[in-house]
Design a protein around this nucleic acid. Structure first.
Lengths: 193, 193
DNA sequence: ATAAATCGTTCACTTAAGTTAAGAAATAAT
DNA sequence: ATTATTTCTTAACTTAAGTGAACGATTTAT
């Protein structure tokens, strides 16, 4: 299991056996069942999540219904906003599949960074990459219609369409489930011709 | 003029006179006229921009028309994606007012960081803040309608509505200029009652 | 100063998303 | 296994955004 994590890290820095063991000794790994809520609105956590296998989802509850704004699958992670600014979370994070993740907190970060400065480098690269990706995603979202967004998703993350419930996908695309159904039917009609 | 920059920096770290002079010696400041294009699609730059006074705008040209995805006003800055990954820019950056900005490149960053490690700290804080803001903005955009987005903007950045042309605002809100006109008329009607 | 281009608004019409409701299909619970 | 719950789709209707065109108003260029 840990191999998944080490393979990922290997893309950025090279670890010695000693370093790997230091990482393992932190007891990062956690296995959670589908449906588990990792973070609730109003709650404050200091934990960050990184998905090794499975899928988690970030959503708000606004006027009583869920608005999904992000999915995190293999090799993606999230540090909740509340872990940074110590304020109650505005959103929920839950598992939409049985999921294996690493759960870390700032103390572990400090500890590991002190022992192995390499990590600091990886963290900087990761956060730069993340910021860049984030900006591109945002621009893409802003500049497309729901239909284009769906087609983009089909191109870029086809797995999501398979593994995520439609109504969650819909809100991720910024529309209602009924509109997604209709939109899919519309696309299907176009293709048939 | 430089006072604006130093006041901003003072919020994060404390600078000695020596450090201030080192900064000034880099020749960061540039004054540009309204309409100036700082970055074109297809072009590669290594420059980052930070607005001291005025307003710049980031936009794509898609199917022949402009899609504005961001405005940067006083104390806001942007490092174009192309400056990070050395690939041709996907978007334009231009000035919508006469603007005073600092223009920096990675070499200057390296130089100043080597001399004054403090800067590294400020940069880390700034990029964390930026990432957090970015995520919240994205979520807010995804979870609201164009009308709500306009009302939010009215709350959070009322200056933008004054200083930015309507058709650019419209595309920033994800709609057409005509729809923005209509939407404003609609809101005005509601208020009258 | 005048002409040209750009900008903002309005209107009529089209297209797509929101809403409410209903029913079938799939999942989860007992 | 059966019931209950959730999920997905379809349909009819409403609301809002897209489109194309027209017309002042403003800004820019000459």
């Amino acid at each position: 299991m840990q191999d998944i994590l080490f393979d990922f890290i290997a893309k950025y820095i090279t670890l010695t056996e000693e370093e790997k063991n230091a990482l393992l000794s932190l007891g990062l790994f956690r296995s959670v069942k589908k449906g588990t809520i990792l973070l609730k609105e109003g709650q404050i956590t200091r934990e960050s999540f990184f998905v090794l296998k499975g899928c988690i989802r970030k959503y708000y509850i606004i006027d009583g219904d869920e608005k999904t704004t992000a999915f995190f699958t293999e090799m993606e992670g999230i540090t909740p906003h509340c872990a940074i600014n110590n304020a109650p979370s505005e959103y929920f994070i839950s598992c939409i599949e049985d999921t294996i993740l690493t759960v870390s907190n700032p103390d572990m970060g400090v500890e590991i960074n002190a022992k192995f400065p390499k990590f600091e480098i990886m963290c900087r690269i990761l956060s730069e990459e993340l910021l860049a990706k984030q900006q591109i995603n945002f621009d893409e979202f802003k500049t497309s219609s729901p239909e284009q967004r769906y087609l983009n998703l089909l191109q870029n993350r086809p797995d999501l369409i398979q593994r995520v419930p439609q109504h969650q996908l819909a809100s991720y695309l910024g529309i209602k489930p009924q509109s997604l159904s209709r939109l899919r039917a519309r696309i299907f009609e176009k293709e048939k011709k």
